[in-house]
């Protein structure tokens, strides 16, 4: 049972020099769940995301995706001496496993970014079309001589379908960066969907959105989750969104997990309230 989590993070520590951004953090996500990771600014949420997508190599710890280890590391070299996280010896005897971000995406984890990162020189349509490159079956020569017509057509049709989901089909030839902010967010999400992920990572999808847009986004996330049979892992500050859509919530502060549970438990958790409001030392 425990082997079949979609995502399983074990004792993850990310340390940069003397700064421990994420400390001995463990969590898991099961198939079909929407799990949120929340915490005050600088708590290490995005760092955890970057470790999952292999942008960073963990300092210590292990990450499994559908039972397969996608990243595993233990402190080496100078880090051995200055390592300040928990469980320093847990993975020493096991081989280090590392991947590049594109390999992780090919395995089925796709993400969006906190500060929107659309391809600025491309149209809305091209943004979604381009990322389907990773599932191509043609090689360089068949593609260069345009002998992969069927595949190309299929890519384009899929792009249109995805654009229709968010109602961007009429804006397909606009430059992606000329869209309004909220639409750019949606475009980034469907661009992530175009890579056929099983696990979707959303990094503050509602940042900069008004309450109305946030509500729509919540409905949208639940909608695509059902439609594409996704598992969703979301970082968010908007509590309306988090409490509304999450099955479970993890809370971290200063890199350490301080709470875990269903939304109602988190809302009443004293440690969480302290972390957000300042707690005793006020």
């Amino acid at each position: 049972m425990s082997q079949e989590h979609v995502l399983d993070i074990r004792h993850l520590t990310m340390q940069f020099g003397g700064v421990v951004a994420v400390n001995d953090f463990s969590m898991h996500i099961d198939d079909g769940e929407i799990v949120a990771l929340i915490g005050p600014n600088g708590a290490g949420k995005t760092t955890a995301f970057n470790a999952v997508t292999s942008v960073y190599e963990p300092t210590n710890g292990e990450i499994l995706f559908e039972g397969e280890t996608i990243a595993r590391s233990h402190p080496t070299g100078k880090m051995k001496k200055i390592f300040a996280g928990g469980h320093p010896d847990a993975f020493v005897s096991q081989p280090i496993i590392r991947h590049t971000p594109d390999e992780i995406t090919k395995k089925g984890i796709s993400r969006t970014f906190q500060n929107i990162r659309l391809f600025s020189g491309m149209t809305v349509f091209e943004n979604v079309l381009t990322v389907q490159h990773l599932r191509k079956k043609s090689n360089f020569f068949t593609a260069a001589f345009h002998l992969n017509g069927a595949e190309e057509k299929q890519m384009r049709e899929k792009t249109m379908e995805l654009l229709k989901i968010v109602g961007l089909q009429d804006l397909r030839d606009e430059m992606a960066t000329s869209l309004p902010y909220g639409k750019q967010r949606l475009l980034e999400i469907i661009r992530a969907l175009a890579t056929d992920p099983k696990l979707l990572l959303l990094d503050e999808p509602a940042a900069g959105m008004n309450p109305q847009e946030t509500l729509e986004l919540a409905a949208f996330i639940q909608d695509i989750k059902r439609k594409f049979q996704l598992t969703v892992f979301v970082i968010e500050h908007h509590m309306d969104l988090v409490m509304g859509i999450s099955d479970r919530i993890y809370v971290i502060d200063f890199g350490k997990q301080i709470a875990e549970g269903v939304p109602s438990e988190i809302q009443n958790n004293q440690a969480v309230i302290d972390a957000y409001l300042g707690g005793d030392d006020l």
């Binding site: 942008v55 995406t105 990162r117 491309m122 381009t130 990773l134 992969n148 890519m155």
Partner: peptide, 20 residues
């Protein structure tokens, strides 16, 4: 499709890599 991939690298390496 290769040309589009190259253009995406020019636009944003981080995003291109994250998109596989």
């Amino acid at each position: 499709t290769y040309g589009r991939a190259l253009r995406s690298i020019k636009d944003d390496e981080v995003a291109a890599e994250a998109m596989g």
